[in-house]
Design a protein around this nucleic acid. Sequence first.
RNA 1: UCCUCAGUAGCUCAGUUGGUUAGAGCACCUGACUGUUAAUCAGGGGGUCCUAGGUUCAAGUCCUAGCUGGGGAGCCA
Length: 464
Amino acid sequence: MDIKRSFVKQLLQSTEFNKPVNVKGWVRTKRDNKQIAFVAINDGSTINNIQVVIDMTSFDENKFKLITTGSSLSVTGTLVQSMGKGQTVEIQAKEVEIYGTADPETYPLQKKGHTLEFLREIAHLRFRTNTFGAIFRIRHAMAFAIHKYFNDHGFYYLHTPIVTGSDAEGAGEMFHVTTLDMHKLPKSEDGKIDFSQDFFGRETNLTVSGQLEAELGATALSNVYTFGPTFRAENSNTPRHLAEFWMIEPEMAFYDITDDMDLAEDFLKYLISYALENCKDDLEFLNNMYDKELIERLNFVVNNKFERIDYTDAINILTQSDQKFEYPVKWGSDLQSEHERYLVEKYYKKPVMVTNYPKEIKAFYMKQNEDGKTVRAMDVLFPRIGEIIGGSQREEVYDKLVTRIKEMGIPEKEMWWYLETRKFGTVPHSGFGLGFERLILFVTGMLNIRDVIPFPRTPKNAEF
RNA sequence: UCCUCAGUAGCUCAGUUGGUUAGAGCACCUGACUGUUAAUCAGGGGGUCCUAGGUUCAAGUCCUAGCUGGGGAGCCA
């Protein structure tokens, strides 16, 4: 009997009863007595399990003992309407093949709730839980939706380098990339490490952003985006930071800051809508188990316009509020977490986009305003997670950009290729960076970023 | 990196003023039960009390240092 394997998801939706079917997957739970046994199987195609019914009067008892939580099976049988409550269809088993057993004394996942902290310590097995199945199906759906959105809007997916010779972006500490013998580093006469002997003949690092390279692509392809891994060697220990994370960075020629904000808002709303439409079962599970307001909050964000305010207005709102802040509010200082939370969660009670920040607290490449004090930066602030997007219109005027580079002490020589885009056919352009894991945090309602990436890289942690 | 809380059974935790043989629930194992669904009921096994020092007649409990984890902050996406 050779029957094509079906996914659990298909079988649960099927109405073709009394036909032979085959399902392969992992046992979640088992209940039994002398006459009959029920085995719940999951294969990752959906959060729901399919119930396999075994007639114990004719089943090998020793083999049955090996069917435990975590074991992997191939079940051939008949799809029937369920006689019991709780499910509509089930499989009457005829043949059960055991691929691999899972000793219940040592298999860490048993049929009980586990804390997310414990599951983080068994990251190789946590995929097998309802929670992480849901999270990673949603993560996939979001990655797919990102490519779909950009493809549908005339953007090109640009692969920017992971190993970079540029350290000018200034977005944090970088991981060095080298093939030099760390125990015998070649030194030049002045005692410095001689990187001319290194693999690339120069000092190289893992990228902290693909933005500068994306800008190069945008000056010919018009609309491009990157979506790849990004590395920050900061010693950050928070539920919102990773040393290795994924970032989406669209860059658009002929976009000003308003176009940039319009895109950011439309993009985020599209992605959240996509999740609501395509990840219903998983979102409902997370809503029930972790965050009773999750789906309500997602709908709210999709259906309401983001508030857009000037940095200066934000400072005024904060200054005039009765709220006591640990950090003083004053024009020229960056907004602290507590300030952002007040604006988003208390004052406006919806996503907020803040623009026109003081130039001193923002990056060198941002478009300078006529007032000489501010730049066309924009941050999108979300409830719970704070800054989800950071972007800006870019300075396209060669002289202004060079002046700023000198003021901020950035090595101008290394930036020659970036500066040439302003020398030859320069155009106004804009872009932003979206932290993929922060998006997934928001969409899943999870609270720790280590739970929305399969293998989190954080200080002192690269076990899996 | 700073502040703060925690680390006791596979998991989640309790453990009194420092005192004799360290407990519970769940999980697991055995048995009972004619369709269960976080099954139920009865019984059973299971401990490097994070590590290293120290105080004390006596330390899971007090002190010091370290390690690991959570929360908050900074840096940021």
